[in-house]
Design a protein around this nucleic acid. Structure first.
Lengths: 190, 190
DNA sequence: GACGATGCGGAGCGCGCGTTCCGGTGGTCA
DNA sequence: TGACCACCGGAACGCGCGCTCCGCATCGTC
């Protein structure tokens, strides 16, 4: 990996950059030939560096998810866990909705994208933020990290269906607040 | 259409039934040859009755959506608009989540499925239920029918990602209540 | 500068699927 | 019952895409 020829390393970087751009725009649906052309290389070169299109996709996606995870870790010790949590939740959805690659990866049933390293880190960091917000009484307690990821996937679907409708995510955010939970419990306990 | 030969009419019905079953299970992804085989006819026969796979899909989906619309119309004059609305909302999501065809059709960007007759009926009936629930003070007023359809799409994505997690839809339901809206407004108006 | 190793490009292969075409079959009606 | 023609089945076509293969170019080394 380090002892690669200079041009090989250069091409690998070009492929990654092109894939990042193409996948972000059109998701997994973009033909691999398009990525190769955008990178200015042949299709064979792509396969020299990545065993399959899927592997290239994973590489691109996991890097981005790793950024989300890092961001979350940086917030894990902040004050006002409630505000921090909601800000992060909304920001992740906003960022991810601009990136078809992330949407496709997260929506993929079974959450395959969370099996690998960076996915697991994101998972853990998200659960940490959630737990702190719940401990502070800001978020209803009947949810765990998996639930939250599912809700993020749902919000991304909403965003894709009705782009830019900011207030729809707020509906979910309001549903996450501890007070909503109380209202629901009261309503179902006459 | 009425002066069709008896076997033709029979085959048409068999194709529709097979398509309903196959699409419900695997969505648009199911190969047309599979539908033909399931129906016990040749691929050519399918194309005699429907100009394209897409048209067959639309026919199947619109019939189901028509049922949803009828159900909604039947509830449009009921008492307790709030309860009726939430019950219907949850039921539609539950039913649709068991039917990949509906999920695919609704998730399709642009909401193509709502352009045709039955889609428009569903749209109108849903908006009516919503408006009545809002007038009764049960649902936050800052939403319209399009918003609600987007939220349904989102809930279907959640359901597909985390099947059977009943309480996640409740998060959205709680977010829809008028009290949640008030809490949100209070929180952003210091 | 020459030579082996390494990487490169892009034509080509295989496959799956939507769609079409046509020779034969069997429903329909006189 | 016989003949006509609407209809049927399924083989075949075109296309797009993931992936492979191999002759050629380029890099690193002596």
């Amino acid at each position: 990996m380090e002892k690669m020829r200079a041009d090989a390393r250069r091409n690998r970087a070009k492929v990654l950059a092109a894939a990042e751009e193409a996948f972000a725009l059109d998701g997994l649906a973009v033909p691999l030939d398009d990525i190769a052309r955008l990178a200015g290389v042949g299709a064979g070169t792509v396969y020299r560096h990545f065993p399959s299109k899927e592997a290239l996709f994973q590489a691109v996606v996991l890097e981005r998810i790793g950024q989300f995870a890092e961001e979350a870790r940086a917030l894990a010790t902040a004050d006002r866990p409630g505000e921090v949590f909601f800000d992060y939740f909304v920001r992740v959805i906003k960022q991810a909705s601009l990136n078809r690659a992330i949407c496709d990866a997260l929506a993929e049933s079974g959450g395959h994208a969370f099996k690998a390293g960076a996915g697991e880190e994101f998972r853990a960091a998200l659960a940490e933020l959630l737990a702190r917000a719940q401990a502070a009484g800001a978020v209803r307690p009947d949810l765990d990290g998996d639930d939250l990821r599912a809700l993020i996937v749902g919000c991304l679907a909403v965003e894709r269906y009705a782009p830019g409708s900011r207030h729809l995510v707020r509906v979910v955010v309001d549903g996450l607040r501890a007070s909503s939970h109380a209202a629901s419990a009261a309503a179902t306990t006459p």
